[in-house]
Simulated scan of single mutants.
Amino acid sequence: MLSSREHLSSVASVAMLWASAEGLLGHPGAQGIDVADGMAAIVACSFPRAELEDLLHKRMTDDFLSTDFPKKLEAESGSGRARLLLEALQIHGSSIFVEVQDIAAASRILQIQSAPHATLTRIQNYFKDVFRRLYYQRNFIMHAAKFDSVSLPSTMRSAPKLVAAGVDRVVHAQHVKAPVTPLSLASRARNELDLLEGDGAREIYRLLK
């Protein structure tokens, strides 16, 4: 279903992408926006950890690599590596990276860390817009036979990777020591985002861990 973007037309791919999300988060009585918003919560919760893990593979400045960071990183695994990078960013700033796009990504992480609830709520709303557009486009195609929506191209630029990210998190949750169902994962994601306002908040790199 996820590979439909590569092999099928946008019209067919919309239906396949939505089916992959609805198949995981749909349930009797659920509306399409419930599925969209649940997927948005999962992806938003996963975003900081995903960004940090991606940045760990990016090019860093020689000055920063001459510190004890590489040695500390070798001794860590999993969330410990994400924690080390976050701490380094808080101390040294985003300029530890070389490429402009990586500096921008690091700056986003620092923004999330400084105001986690406000920033991740805004990110979650962006994702809601994407997933809801996907749902609406699917309805246009499947129920109204409308194939010329002006927003279809923009939907297909953003939705496939976000759907894939959500599915990845759902599948991962099935293969841990204490498996979590897709609907439970979506509920937990919503709760974790709400808890960012208070004292019970988790670290931003452990929201779904």
Rank of each mutant, 00 (worst) to 15 (best):
T119C: 03
S94W: 02
M60W: 01
Q111A: 09
A15E: 05
P116S: 04
A88V: 04
L73N: 11
T61S: 04
D62I: 14
L55H: 08
Q90M: 13
L89P: 10
M60K: 11
I42K: 13
T119F: 00
S94F: 01
L89N: 05
V35N: 07
V35S: 00
K72L: 14
A104I: 11
Q31E: 10
R122K: 15
W18C: 07
A40C: 15
E76W: 05
L84C: 06
D68H: 11
H92T: 05
Q111W: 08
F131W: 04
R83D: 10
L89W: 00
A12K: 13
V43Q: 03
P28G: 08
G26V: 08
V43H: 12
V100P: 01
L65K: 04
S79F: 05
T61R: 00
K71N: 06
I33Y: 03
D63F: 03
E76Y: 08
D129K: 07
N125E: 12
D34K: 01
G26I: 01
K72D: 09
P70W: 06
L25C: 04
L73C: 15
Q31D: 02
A12D: 13
L52Q: 11
E87D: 11
S66W: 01
E87N: 02
L24I: 07
F47C: 07
M16A: 15
G32D: 13
V100H: 10
V11I: 15
L56F: 05
L65S: 12
V100Y: 07
Y126L: 13
E87G: 10
L89M: 04
Q90I: 06
L24M: 15
I96C: 04
R59H: 14
A88I: 02
R81E: 10
L85Q: 13
M60H: 05
A115E: 11
L110H: 07
L134P: 01
A40P: 12
E22M: 02
D62L: 09
H117E: 14
L73H: 09
W18V: 06
Q113P: 05
R122Y: 11
V14S: 04
Q101L: 01
E99D: 14
I33W: 11
G38E: 02
V130S: 03
I103H: 05
I33P: 03
